[in-house]
Design a protein around this nucleic acid. Structure first.
Length: 982
DNA sequence: GCAAGGACGTA
DNA sequence: GTACGTCCTTGCA
């Protein structure tokens, strides 16, 4: 029991609001359950960690000082208090206690006793009143008081010698913080609360007056009594009336919120002195609670052997051996086989289509059961799950991290699934709401990250166990950064992409809705959204388990549907040659990143800013008034309203169109302002999107920029790049190319750029079977000049630039699914003239018209088109009633065969080039892909040997699947920076 | 704070 | 006329 030791000046009294702590801990901390019997103990764990920090404060580095000399944990004794007597509705709103919270109350009391600390409660009083009385008495004796509570009512006690500590927010509350919260000092807190009321405790206050208004009024009138007495003087009529009408209610509220500081204490202050806890008893309690980490710490601190101490027999769990997931998985697997065979028998034979049917039926027939998920808290349980995965030969995998950026994220947890609803979550890096001062940050019952990584590695690298992920590149990269090479692997997102690109989204939630008819828990439900969103490492572990284990569970279920579909629809080789290998290839590219010259970009930013400032001055002058040149709305009003310039077009929403083409026309007519605006826009674009933004993407660890390449983002099979997008670095203008120069090679290296020359046009010649075009490519002719010559009968030698330019525009137009309207726009010629060009082109190259007609017809019939390598691009709106929507889809479908085939070819090259370089003992590292171009970083001395390897792999990429009749040509060059290599 | 629209960089 | 991603302004909550 606590000893008697009168409190003196300089002592430190700590008062803990036990009831409030339990409530707050229940909601703020991840709900933790005792491993052996699932007894909820989250609040108890948080409480014990806090007490441990407090009693060890003198010796530890917790920063909580001075060490308490006296400490009391204060509880509410009963519901019936003097406040209820004067206002029966007081705290009537309190909801019933959650079931998993109730058993924690007695455990908190037990914990307090185990720490040999005083546990105080007193009939008829709330804990707050007892604490106020203790605090008042201690203050009078010159002691320091710390109140550990999150209850804002306690703020009225704060003063010179009395501070608060919010254990959930890990934040000290002094006079300044009280001001921040209430707009008044602690002595006026009661007045503010009397006016503002409190909906949680059902304190009525004065209607229409909140904390802000209350503080403002009190600032003006001094205190509550003065304010109520002079209410007539208030200027705002509504406010005045409210204060007059509800003066009594304000006074009643004051009674309710004012803490009683003169309770006759059953336990005198002297009796709450802190004594050293009895180590063995404390360890016995902690062992009964199964708080492994804290048990170890306490045992170490008191020099006792935890293993020799029996858990407190009154509190320990009646251990109940958990069901082994190994056995369960086996059982389930056997069930599944029977189901499948039965289904297949029903179809007559085990055809791929029958299997797909069976799997789709199974997917919706087996509901997701989150109650089966396990939170893995010990290495033993982890080992059991790893064994289950080996047994199954397949495991779905998902990593939870601190960031969407796999290059910066830290691992927070890993989930595994070995069968339907047979999933677990292994929390590794979850932090508590009370870290910092009161604990080590990491929540208890988590396997150390390193230990988990080492335990998982043999499984994740086991060639005999297939790892399934949804967007596996993220998890692959994440785990690679922790030293694990996940292989072999499948990716449900990529399977969906191969099967349904263009026909729907490939994210996990929509796939789950579509195939499993199941709605997974949203990320927002675990971590909130908007401003209040928390990082996953702060998520409650039970919610995290439901969310993360479900992701793995759903992923495995999706795999069971999509894998057979690949077989049934003949897309296995597309998936295995164009998609799956790219996971690791892109993962490595992203890990490498690319070097940029930060100084160069910074200097450019300055130059661009100067140019913009100069232009802004001229723009203001020309417009006759200052306006924002970045606002198309304001610009349109100035140009076509105020200045009345001709040629004004409207955008689909009815606003003035101020696009570059419009401004360019106006500039041609000799107007100065549009020219300046165009110049300004160029600088603005270059500065904001490139010179300012790129350096913010520099990874502090690597000093390089790591873009993310998306494999399943386009309908055609192209990759996309984001954060930052490195596929749209300027190249067309001189100013823009300065940015490209800032992309540099590592010291001792050069950048090598290797790009396919006119690949889509070559593919047009191939696919549309245009002998003249094919021949031209075989002969290495200037294809645009040749086209012009064929069309206009002009000899190639001495051809005017304008003629060639028009032919080039037509060639590109064909690739984009040409329309007279579009070509007219591009060439700035009348629609009729453009139509005539197209007509002549088709006459000269009839194969192209046939190709376009055939593609249109195929797309209309099937709803998709296919590339030369079998990749499907879906166009569900190809048969739309709306002619312009239909025409748009037709053009897109025509383009997709060419763009998609080109994308397939470069994917094939990327999948092979690393091995080819390795085989040639070259150390070139592929960094970027820009649709028809690959960028490598190559040591200076290896460049000569590297260029032919890259070129060969790229040019031969279609083989052996497809032997093109047109040659592919690749140009490769090395230089210090990307601009010169390109 | 968020979504839509406009504008513009690339292949 | 194809395919993307990002920045800024604007209008709404």
């Amino acid at each position: 029991m606590p000893e008697t030791d009168p409190l003196e000046a300089g002592d430190h009294l700590v008062l803990i609001d036990g009831s409030a702590y339990i409530f707050r801990a229940y909601h703020a901390l991840p709900p933790l359950t005792r491993t052996s019997d699932k007894l909820p103990v989250g609040a108890v764990a948080g409480f014990c960690n806090m007490l441990w920090k407090l009693v060890r404060a003198g010796e530890s580095h917790s920063g909580f000082s001075p060490a308490p000399t006296h400490l009391a944990v204060v509880f509410d004794k009963s519901e019936q208090t003097f406040r209820k007597e004067i206002y029966p509705l007081y705290k009537a709103q309190r909801p019933d206690l959650p079931d998993d919270l109730i058993p924690q109350f007695p455990l908190i009391r037990e914990a307090t006793r185990a720490f040999d600390l005083a546990c105080v409660e007193q009939e008829g009083f709330e804990a707050d009143d007892l604490m106020a009385t203790y605090a008042e008495e201690a203050k009078a004796k010159g002691a320091l008081v710390t109140i550990i509570s999150s209850d804002k009512d306690m703020m009225q006690l704060v003063g010179e010698k009395v501070r608060m500590y919010d254990p959930m927010k890990d934040r000290a509350i002094g006079i300044d913080e009280v001001f921040e919260k209430f707009g008044v000092g602690p002595e006026r807190v009661v007045d503010v609360q009397s006016l503002a009321g409190d909906s949680v405790d059902n304190v009525p206050g004065v209607p229409g007056i909140g904390v802000k208004t209350a503080a403002q009024l009190l600032g003006e009138y001094g205190d509550l009594d003065t304010l109520l007495a002079r209410a007539e003087e208030i200027r705002q009529p509504k406010r005045r009336q409210s204060l007059i009408d509800f003066a009594d209610q304000a006074r009643l509220s004051r009674e309710l919120v004012t803490l009683k500081r003169d309770v006759v204490l059953d336990v005198p202050l002297a009796d709450v002195a802190v004594v050293e806890p009895e180590g063995r008893r404390l360890v016995a309690f902690l062992k009964a609670m199964e708080f492994t980490t804290l048990t170890r710490r306490v045992a170490e601190a008191y020099g006792v052997e935890a293993a020799e101490i029996e858990p407190d027999p009154r509190l320990k769990a009646g251990a109940d051996p958990a069901i082994s997931p190994v056995a369960a998985a086996q059982e389930k697997a056997e069930d599944d086989e029977e189901t499948e065979e039965a289904a297949a028998r029903g179809e007559g034979e085990l055809t791929p289509a029958a299997l797909v049917g069976a799997r789709i039926a199974e997917a919706t027939a087996t509901p997701v059961d989150r109650s089966k998920y396990e939170t893995v808290a010990t290495p033993e349980r982890l080992a059991a799950w790893i064994a289950a995965a080996r047994e199954a030969g397949i495991v779905a995998l998902d990593t939870e991290t601190t960031s969407l950026d796999a290059m910066q994220a830290e691992l927070v947890g890993v989930s595994l699934a070995v069968g339907p609803s047979l999933a677990c979550y292994i929390p590794l890096g979850h932090k508590g709401g009370d870290d910092g001062l009161f604990s080590e940050g990491l929540l208890p019952d988590q396997i150390p990250v390193n230990a988990a990584v080492e335990a998982l590695r043999p499984l994740l690298e086991d060639p005999a166990v297939l790892k399934v992920g949804q967007n596996m590149k993220y998890d692959w990269l994440m785990l690679k950064r922790y030293g694990i090479d996940v292989t072999p692997h499948d990716d449900t997102m990529l399977m969906s992409y191969v099967l349904d690109a263009g026909a729907g989204p490939h994210g996990m939630d929509p796939l789950s809705e579509r195939w499993l008819k199941h709605t997974p828990i949203k990320y927002e439900e675990v971590c909130g959204k908007g401003k209040g969103q928390i990082c996953f490492d702060r998520a409650a572990i039970d919610k995290a388990t439901a969310y993360a284990a479900e992701d793995a569970d759903v992923t495995l279920r999706l795999w069971r549907v999509l894998k057979p579909r690949l077989v049934a629809e003949g897309k296995v080789s597309v998936y295995e040659t164009l998609e799956r290998p790219l996971v690791a290839v892109l993962g490595r590219m992203e890990m490498r990143g690319v070097a940029i010259d930060r100084q160069m970009l910074s200097r450019l930013s300055g130059e661009f800013a100067q140019g913009m400032a100069r232009l802004e001055a001229e723009i203001g002058e020309l417009a006759g008034e200052p306006f924002n040149p970045g606002s198309p709305k304001q610009l349109g009003d100035i140009l076509f309203g105020k200045m009345g310039l001709p040629g004004g077009r409207k955008t689909p929403t009815g606003a003035w169109s101020t696009g570059a083409d419009v401004l360019d026309d106006l500039a041609e007519q000799g107007h100065e302002l549009p020219r300046r605006i165009l110049d300004w826009r160029q600088l603005q674009k270059l500065k904001s999107t490139y010179t300012d933004a790129l350096p913010t993407y520099l990874n502090p660890e690597t000093g390089r920029v790591h873009s993310s390449f998306a494999l399943a983002a386009t309908t055609t099979g192209r990759l996309s790049s984001s954060e930052p997008n490195l596929q749209n670095i300027p190249v067309r203008t001189e100013e823009g190319r300065k940015i490209r120069k800032a992309f540099v090679a590592a010291p001792g290296c050069k950048l090598v750029s290797a790009d396919y020359s006119q690949i889509e046009l070559r593919l047009l010649a191939e696919i549309a079977e245009v002998p003249a075009l094919r021949q031209a490519f075989q002969d290495g002719l200037d294809i645009h000049a040749m086209t012009a010559s064929e069309m206009f009968g002009v000899p190639v030698a001495g051809m005017p630039g304008e003629v060639r330019r028009r032919a080039k525009a037509i060639n590109f137009g064909i690739i984009y699914g040409i329309s007279a309207f579009g070509l007219a726009n591009q060439l700035a010629i009348p629609r009729e003239e453009a139509g005539a060009y197209i007509k002549r082109y088709f006459e000269r190259f009839p194969g192209i018209r046939d190709y376009m007609d055939a593609t249109r017809a195929y797309a209309r019939e099937h709803g998709y088109v296919e590339t030369l390598f079998g990749r499907r691009c879906h166009y569900p709106d190809i048969n739309a009633k709306n002619p312009s929507i239909r025409a748009f889809n037709e053009r897109a479908a025509i383009n997709a065969r060419l763009q998609g085939t080109a994308a397939d070819i470069i994917r094939r090259a990327m999948a092979r080039v690393e091995a080819a370089l390795q085989a040639a003992r070259l150390s070139a590292r592929m960094l970027l892909q820009v649709h028809d171009e690959l960028i490598f970083e190559v040591p200076d001395e290896e460049i000569a040997a590297t260029l032919p390897v890259i070129t060969r792999v790229m040019e031969q990429a279609p083989l052996p699947a497809v032997a093109l009749r047109v040659p592919l040509r690749v140009d490769a060059r090395a230089a210090e920076n990307w601009d010169e290599a390109h």
